[in-house]
């Protein structure tokens, strides 16, 4: 795993913890800035929380809690999805680690 991806994971984890404490509003600007800077380096971090989950989503590694059905949603994100932009093409460099219900 590249250092950059590890860095993103740390930032993401911090943001998750802050959200849990309901302090997100205070840090929103800082996180936007961090993610903006990363995007300038070609790294795109995506938090798929709340998105629909289907088995064709290969951008995530999912653990399925509860019953598997057609209307599954991502209910917890342990690691975000990371894409790297290289020569105008996006490449998936980290699959999101998610829990789906």
């Amino acid at each position: 795993m590249s250092q950059n991806v590890q860095l993103i994971n740390q930032v993401f984890e911090i943001s998750q913890k802050i959200e849990q404490e309901q302090l997100s509003a205070k840090f929103e600007r800082n996180f936007t800035k961090i993610y903006n800077l990363l995007e300038e380096e070609g790294l795109h971090c995506i938090n798929p929380l709340g998105e629909k989950y289907t088995e064709s989503r290969t951008d995530c590694e999912a653990s399925i809690a509860g019953k598997a059905n057609h209307n599954m949603k991502i209910t917890k994100v342990i690691k975000p999805i990371v894409y790297k932009q290289e020569n105008g093409q996006m490449v998936l460099i980290q699959k999101g680690i998610v829990i789906v219900e």
Binding site: S56, T58, I81, Q85, M90, V91
Partner: peptide, 26 residues
């Protein structure tokens, strides 16, 4: 092509639709 979407092997029918998820601005 970026590896974020894969339908798996789906039986071929004479007419069908697929929803293709798109990455933004690319």
């Amino acid at each position: 092509s970026d590896g974020g979407f894969d339908t798996g092997f789906v039986p071929l029918k004479s007419k069908f639709t697929e929803f293709l998820p798109l990455l933004p601005n690319i």
